[in-house]
């Protein structure tokens, strides 16, 4: 929690539009710059944002394990096929983007996803598609769990004892009985969902978005800081290469 002109703020108190703007600017900055010192600063900023979001460690420790494995993998590949400088750049970029992504995603109320993008000027259908995506994620995860159980009930085992390259490829192929039912079901269910939306007059005219959003002083400060960050990144790219 920080005190900004007597207003106590944390990540969740910012308007979602301000948060999305910050995230977009930070991501663009990370992709633009190559200088290791600047990238290190951006990685620290990303980490700071995650701390500021106050997401419980228990909730993100498994995700971080995946992130660390991913970073180790890309660093190793860069060291193997490119240069140590590029390896360091990619690792810092990954830290900055993973930290800020987690901070934004885990503090975002999915019920506000659509209206956020609508108020940022995107069309109704695009904005609602984002809402639907947020609705769909738990359903997909549930379907995936059911499919894993259903295939295990047919003697299916994902693990392969073969550690050779052939064994790894076999594991890849063995995902097919898990992926196909989930994808086919999602596609078929989409028709029912589209019908349900048609029957409730979706897309027949301008719609009201029930949630309202209001930009306050801290939001304007964050938006201004975000564009300043982006401008700084453009300058760093031009000056430092």
């Amino acid at each position: 929690m920080i005190n900004l002109w007597m207003v106590e703020v944390n990540m969740q108190t910012f308007d979602p539009r301000a948060r999305v703007t910050f995230y977009a600017c930070l991501t663009t900055a990370v992709l633009l710059v190559n200088d290791l010192r600047v990238l290190a600063g951006l990685a620290m900023l990303g980490g700071g944002v995650l701390l500021f979001a106050r997401v419980p460690w228990e909730r993100i420790k498994r995700i971080w394990l995946g992130v660390v494995i991913f970073i180790a993998l890309i660093t190793a590949l860069n060291l193997l096929f490119r240069t140590p400088l590029e390896a360091a750049q990619q690792a810092l970029r990954a830290v900055a983007m993973a930290s800020s992504s987690l901070a934004i995603v885990l503090t975002f109320d999915p019920a506000y996803l659509g209206v956020t993008f609508r108020r940022m000027g995107f069309p109704d259908k695009f904005a609602f598609a984002l809402d639907l995506t947020a609705r769909f994620v738990p359903t997909l995860m549930r379907d995936f769990r059911i499919t894993i159980d259903a295939q295990r009930a047919r003697g299916y085992e994902l693990e392969s004892r073969d550690r050779s390259l052939k064994g790894i490829l076999t594991v890849g192929r063995r995902f097919v009985p898990l992926i196909v039912p989930v994808v086919v079901r999602a596609v078929l269910d989409a028709e029912d969902r589209a019908n349900a939306m048609d029957l409730r007059a979706f897309g027949t005219g301008p719609r009201t978005w029930l949630q309202t959003l209001r930009l306050g002083l801290p939001d304007y400060v964050l938006i201004a800081a975000s564009f300043a960050l982006l401008a700084g990144a453009i300058a760093a790219r031009l000056v430092l290469g």
């Binding site: 019920a111 809402d131 609705r135 029912d192 969902r193 939306m197 005219g205 719609r207």
Partner: peptide, 28 residues
């Protein structure tokens, strides 16, 4: 329709019930 799960489009119950009314452009 037959499977209520396939008709749900919103993440929150309030928004789900409001969905059709939002599409008709009624006031908040």
């Amino acid at each position: 329709m037959q499977d209520p799960d396939k008709q749900i489009v919103a993440t929150r119950v309030f928004n789900e019930i409001a969905f059709g009314l939002e599409n008709l452009g009624l006031s908040r």
